[in-house]
């Protein structure tokens, strides 16, 4: 039975914000990493590690806030391994990123053994007296958990730092031409390591958002490719913060709509609906790659100061 009338647009828009947040957080982190000239394909691994770190700490302390902090630390700790591999041991970025994802999936499954089937402590939703009670606008914009707004604030912050501050200029210089940046006296490796750690922390937050708020419970491999979608999103956004946000809401929308259609009993089999976010990601990538390539010029290249 198909019942499209059961899909409420208000609810759809509200849950879109929630579905988009993990992708947004992870993609913003990766954006900064790639602008510094590093290609970290380990987003999926860092997200799932963040998901379990956040979940475990939140369950044990009863505080989602501490959970999110732990998730950021866990993601950053894992990304430190990537930083050591690529910046110190000068390993190939693609291979190291894959190693990070494979390792992260194993690590999270190991850490999460005792946490299957447990409910995490609930995260409070925002409740602003007048605004949250507004019809339509209230539930869509003003009645979410704080992390949704952290994601939005982070978008703004990343945009501001990259485009309007000296630190952002140095980071971009390192990403566009690491040899020139090195010649100017900037610490290429240090900048990149910090960018990688930031990316890891963001991915960790995104992962914890899935396990603590979006789902909320712990299952092995629960990020199910969101990390990879976040990577695709950075390409889609042509390495610009504003468009990362746009893209995240687009993908969030697709996911939510697809789930709603499943619930409404559309004549398409569930499996075909479930593969739609991945197929749409591919389509979007194809459309975007027709545009001029705006990738940072040193992206994925190994830097070694010969003197």
């Amino acid at each position: 039975m198909m019942d499209l009338g059961s899909i409420s647009p208000t609810l759809l828009l509200a849950s879109l914000m929630v579905a988009a947040t993990p992708i947004l957080l992870a993609a913003l982190g990766e954006l900064v990493v790639e602008r510094a000239g590093v290609l970290n394909l380990g987003v999926e691994g860092m997200m799932i590690t963040g998901a379990i770190c956040g979940f475990a700490i939140a369950v044990n302390t009863g505080s989602p806030t501490l959970g999110f902090i732990a998730a950021a630390l866990g993601g950053a700790a894992l990304s430190l391994l990537f930083a050591i591999l690529t910046q110190v041991a000068l390993a190939n970025h693609v291979a190291s990123g894959l190693a990070l994802t494979l390792f992260g999936l194993g690590l999270s499954a190991l850490l999460g053994q005792g946490y299957v089937g447990i409910k995490p402590p609930a995260t409070d939703k925002l409740d602003i007296p007048v605004l949250s009670d507004l019809p339509v606008v209230g539930p869509v914009l003003f009645a979410h958990d704080p992390m949704v707004y952290v994601g939005l604030a982070l978008t703004l912050a990343v945009w501001f730092v990259l485009n309007r501050t000296r630190a952002g200029l140095i980071l971009r210089a390192v990403g566009e031409n690491h040899d020139a940046a090195h010649a100017l006296g900037y610490k290429v490796v240090r900048v990149r390591v910090m960018a990688i750690l930031f990316g890891g922390a963001c991915a960790g937050l995104g992962g914890a958002y899935i396990s603590l708020i979006r789902v909320p419970q712990w299952t092995e491999g629960m990020t199910a490719g969101v990390g990879w979608i976040a990577l695709a999103l950075v390409v889609f956004a042509s390495w610009r913060a504003g468009r990362v946000m746009l893209g995240a809401y687009l993908f969030g929308g697709v996911t939510v709509l697809q789930l709603n259609l499943q619930a409404a009993g559309v004549a398409l089999p569930v499996e075909y609906l479930s593969m739609s976010p991945y197929i749409i990601t591919i389509l979007v990538l194809v459309i975007m790659s027709a545009e001029r390539n705006r990738a940072p010029a040193s992206l994925g290249r190994t830097f070694h100061a010969s003197n």
């Binding site: 494979l102 999936l105 194993g106 690590l107 999270s108 499954a109 190991l110 053994q113 092995e220």
Partner: peptide
């Protein structure tokens, strides 16, 4: 645990 082996391979 099986996950430990997966981690071992990683």
């Amino acid at each position: 645990p099986a996950a430990a082996i997966q981690m071992f391979q990683g």
